[in-house]
Design a protein around this nucleic acid. Sequence first.
DNA 1: CACAGCGCTGCAAAGGTTTGCAATGAAGTA
DNA 2: TACTTCATTGCAAACCTTTGCAGCGCTGTG
Lengths: 392, 392
Amino acid sequence: MGHTHVTATTSDEGAAVPVTIRDVARASGVHISTVSRTFSAPHLVNPETRVRVLACAEDLGYRPNRAARALITGRTHNIGLIIADIANPFFPPLIKAAEGQARHRDYHVFVADTNEDPTAEEELVHALAKQVDGVLLCSPRMSNSLIEQLSREVPLVVVNRQVTGLPCVLMDVGQGARSAIEHLVGLGHRSIALLGGPRSSWTNREMRRAANAAARAGGAELTVLGPNAPTEVGGSAVAEQVRRSGVSAVLAYNDLMAIGLIEGLDALGVRVPQEVSVVGVDDITLSRLTRPKLTTVATPTGAAGRTAVDMLLQQDIESPRGARGSGAGTALGVRRTTAQVMLQTDLVIRDSTGPGPYARPARPLAAPRGPGPHCPAGPGIPTAATGDAVAS
Amino acid sequence: MGHTHVTATTSDEGAAVPVTIRDVARASGVHISTVSRTFSAPHLVNPETRVRVLACAEDLGYRPNRAARALITGRTHNIGLIIADIANPFFPPLIKAAEGQARHRDYHVFVADTNEDPTAEEELVHALAKQVDGVLLCSPRMSNSLIEQLSREVPLVVVNRQVTGLPCVLMDVGQGARSAIEHLVGLGHRSIALLGGPRSSWTNREMRRAANAAARAGGAELTVLGPNAPTEVGGSAVAEQVRRSGVSAVLAYNDLMAIGLIEGLDALGVRVPQEVSVVGVDDITLSRLTRPKLTTVATPTGAAGRTAVDMLLQQDIESPRGARGSGAGTALGVRRTTAQVMLQTDLVIRDSTGPGPYARPARPLAAPRGPGPHCPAGPGIPTAATGDAVAS
DNA sequence: CACAGCGCTGCAAAGGTTTGCAATGAAGTA
DNA sequence: TACTTCATTGCAAACCTTTGCAGCGCTGTG
């Protein structure tokens, strides 16, 4: 095993000496309840006492034990984030945004990766339920009915999936797919393929529906290929099939697949965009770095993460869970208002799409080229919209 | 704000009715302690009773409250993961591996993103300290002394940084840099630039040291440019500087910078690898997808994540924190064994490096081409090595 | 028969915090 | 002066679970 090199040393090390509210109370000569109030209801304690207590706390390095607090308040100040696949570059910006927003509201985030496995999703919701005040379910793969059922166990906000009766954050991929198809039709493509993603994906169905309608409206023929794994490999695997199908343009379920497809086509000697145009979805960073640069439908992932967190906290605040007085059936039948937010998507035109067989020769390019109506994660969408959305 | 569309509905919804150990006890006609034992020490309870209790628990949908358990056992079964930047594609595989390994050991993971901000790092360690059994500090930007200090508050494992007296998981970027330089020298490059990363990065110093030594040994001249932001932008920003410097090859701090640099050079009309060779570090997925495909030093990120989790748990198990009998200064001066693990890196030769000005004409390519000694995240390194390492 | 040992179970304390209620003292009002 | 009000603080229960100890009924041994 020449792979690793290990060195070991032993050292004296002070184990963590946990300092509790009691220590602070003793040090500042007050009762523990006063210390508690100093932190959680400062207006109830004499300013003089307060500063003394705070000084002692600072001095001893006291930090309230959130677990103990959670035990009695019923609120953990944690939220769970369940993700289909962290390694899919679509998700990190979402996680980052959610984590930031949560921290901003004094919440921490549990992250769990399900490897696109619906069973893991369910288990994780259960496992997290008691440790968090709510869960963000991102691009879930399980059934709607199961989601509804789980939502009775712990407050849920669903991202990238529409579940009636539950708060959802959606990206308007329908509109995105329509724009993409219109763009392709405008370029003179009449035979277009849609590379489908996972079967249980809401996004997938939505895109298919919208793409079909847009193609019909534009007088183009749409072939659906799939379902496929939403990865680069999934994309390159269908390259051969795409070539045989004879289409001149492809709309892929996401950027990863689009990039994989371009790779695959390249290996077959098919040039993009000269022979086949390719459009992706997501506008991951990567899509600006490949060659050709990818034309894609930009989804506001950061905004989605922030919005989802806000919706969860909003929902949570109006109905504090369990806690005191939980005799028999406490708060059955709470009337809860659920909002569903749809975030806009934007077509970003880059270099992977070009004129098709039916392009009008006069104007070689039917749509604006280059930077174009380019607005990836523009500043218009995020928090302002979020506020509006949740308020309604 | 035309960006979003919101719909709202109200619905009756059962709020989570928390079912506790007491409910199970009542339902199955035993004392709560028996229920507790059914879960945490099954061998102490009569098989008959056990099945009855389990049936009732299942029936009521009981799940032990980990927060309450943590309160008394002193172990939360959570670990914290502090990351410089989730959006940096280097980290997701590490997070994924760590999360998987943790879950495999019945632990959950708190993820926090610091945005490369040392202050945030410190705050987060404090905030997480009481909620987790230990923290993984990945590529920290704070000072060694602060890390040592924090390690007295909560068990720490450091990834990508060497701190004496603390368990560390390191990747041998020194060896990687050496291989890269040797590769370039072998190709006939004699004037090489090193694109530095963040100043406070251990990896950065290590690379610099090794690259300098290797260049000297190979009779090449090494120019250090930086520090730079470890991002694509950081890379493209120095393209002009690289061109002016007249070097024929560049070793970048990481793949992101390398890719950015290639972009930047391309914009200046400098072709890679014909005019300048570029080598990255990390072997992120992206590096296989750009054109030209990136020659890079592959780092075993998955293995690092798993190893770090194992080391943390190992360390934790041998010294259960605080809990019962925490009178005065309990366990001061615990003798702890700390291991430092160094994981091997591998040079992956792809298409971004080519012959330099001093290439020997006879053999146009001094090093093997194409797939070559390609072994990214190969199966040799991970868990087996991990076991060995921690055992020592 | 006395007693030890065993398998199983109940009892109650402990863990750190919050919070309703009561007690204290002082100031304000009639 | 007697009474009310208010600000401040202490008391103790409660949250849910784990765990050392003791008790129970039984069997086996001396």
